Amino acid sequence: MDKNAPPNSASTVADVAREAGVSKATAARVLGGYGTVSEKVRVAVMAAAEALDYRPNELARSMTTGRSGTIGVIVGDIENPFFSLAVRGITDVARQAGFTVVLVNSSEDARNEEAALRTLLAKRVDGLIVSPAKESETDHLRDAARSGRPLVLLDRGSETLGVDTVVANDRHAAESITRKLIARGHRHIAYLTACDTPDHHFRTPADIHTGSVRRRIEGFFSTCQEAGMTDVEHNIHVGAVTPERTRAIIMAMIEAPLRPTAIIASDSVIALEVFKLCREFAIRIPDDLSLVSFHDADWTSVTTPPVTVIRQPVYQLGETAARLLVRRMKGDVGPPTRTVLETELVERASVSMPDQSSEPPHRG
């Protein structure tokens, strides 16, 4: 190594080769972990690398070996506890398999998702896990799958893509909790989601392009109709994308002549806003309003009252997606799989029978 080089100058493969007394190609094989060399040479090269404090150039190594040792993950909202826990499951499996995770947030925007995908492919990630923002916009995902990089869809599937998919049984979960609310006497149940439509009004489940949420709404919608409830579409509220927007929607609901007696929140972020607003306006949960949330966020078990939730296997979703991806990266070429994980209803104290004396009349 050049004696006149500054102390923090990065060592190169050539420096290590010179120090170990081997060719640059031999040093590269040892440092890159490919090819075969004698144990004596390997020990000499590794000793030289340690002495020179050599740090590998990951880009150069990926160009040589065709592998970067990284997995690209794209999720809709990294601030949502659901995605945080799913990513934990992914990273735990990835680390055990020797991979580093590169995480990108799409903000539930298909254009952001497409741009993130291009960036990750340019960085030569070895595989991809994506939670699609819109099942109706998947051309970029299809192109990624065609690139040869293994792709696994997380929480949201696509019937048009022949790739591994891991989802929760969202429709069954929504059906179960809706039946329980109806059995308790609720006839005016609201469903609130961050998913939106161009005019911010829900008409049919086909309006919802996020697969997991659409399956929940389908379950809610069909169960209400089976119970003889009419105008169900008016009880599904979309566009709760920010705390301010969520608050405005909730205020409109509770100030309407036909006030809901129960709300199903499509995620724990929305449920928290419902809970906060009820506290602010002295709306008693569950005496005045029953509340159920998808996702068992930490806060839901420590409030007064604790909130009834649909516990999703969030960590297992991420863990399973990562295991499937690692299997593909190791050469599995079997047919695509669709894994459906079951949910669990955790009944706490935020649901009761509606006050029949104050419940608004049933529409229709």
Results as ranks from 00 to 15, higher is better:
residue 274 V to Y: 00
residue 322 A to M: 12
residue 304 T to S: 11
residue 302 V to A: 10
residue 270 I to F: 05
residue 288 D to W: 06
residue 264 I to V: 09
residue 264 I to W: 00
residue 278 C to T: 02
residue 321 A to H: 07
residue 309 V to S: 10
residue 277 L to T: 04
residue 300 T to V: 15
residue 278 C to K: 02
residue 298 D to T: 10
residue 280 E to G: 06
residue 321 A to L: 14
residue 281 F to T: 12
residue 296 D to R: 13
residue 275 F to S: 00
residue 273 E to F: 00
residue 289 L to W: 04
residue 304 T to G: 04
residue 279 R to H: 01
residue 292 V to T: 11
residue 321 A to C: 15
residue 283 I to L: 06
residue 265 A to G: 07
residue 287 D to Q: 10
residue 289 L to D: 00
residue 307 V to L: 13
residue 323 R to G: 14
residue 313 P to M: 14
residue 283 I to F: 06
residue 324 L to Y: 07
residue 283 I to S: 00
residue 284 R to G: 01
residue 275 F to N: 00
residue 318 G to Y: 02
residue 261 T to Y: 09
residue 277 L to S: 03
residue 318 G to W: 02
residue 282 A to K: 06
residue 314 V to S: 06
residue 299 W to M: 08
residue 285 I to V: 09
residue 293 S to T: 14
residue 316 Q to M: 15
residue 263 I to T: 00
residue 263 I to F: 03
residue 263 I to L: 00
residue 320 T to N: 12
residue 293 S to W: 03
residue 293 S to V: 11
residue 304 T to M: 11
residue 308 T to G: 11
residue 265 A to F: 02
residue 301 S to E: 08
residue 308 T to D: 13
residue 277 L to G: 03
residue 286 P to K: 06
residue 263 I to P: 01
residue 321 A to Q: 12
residue 273 E to Q: 08
residue 307 V to G: 04
residue 281 F to H: 12
residue 296 D to M: 10
residue 269 V to I: 11
residue 284 R to V: 06
residue 305 P to V: 12
residue 294 F to A: 13
residue 283 I to Q: 01
residue 272 L to Q: 03
residue 309 V to P: 03
residue 291 L to P: 08
residue 312 Q to W: 09
residue 291 L to S: 07
residue 301 S to H: 10
residue 271 A to G: 09
residue 314 V to C: 11
residue 275 F to T: 05
residue 314 V to G: 05
residue 265 A to T: 06
residue 305 P to Y: 09
residue 296 D to I: 12
residue 280 E to S: 10
residue 316 Q to A: 14
residue 270 I to G: 01
residue 323 R to C: 12
residue 291 L to Q: 05
residue 294 F to L: 15
residue 270 I to W: 02
residue 287 D to T: 07
residue 305 P to H: 08
residue 323 R to A: 15
residue 272 L to I: 04
residue 277 L to N: 03
residue 274 V to H: 01
residue 261 T to V: 02
residue 309 V to I: 13
residue 276 K to R: 07
residue 322 A to N: 10
residue 292 V to D: 08
residue 295 H to N: 15
residue 262 A to N: 04
residue 283 I to K: 01
residue 306 P to Q: 12
residue 320 T to K: 13
residue 288 D to V: 07
residue 320 T to V: 15
residue 301 S to K: 13
residue 286 P to Q: 08
residue 320 T to A: 15
residue 323 R to L: 14
residue 318 G to L: 11
residue 298 D to F: 09
residue 319 E to G: 09
residue 320 T to E: 13
residue 286 P to G: 11
residue 284 R to D: 04
residue 266 S to Q: 07
residue 273 E to H: 03
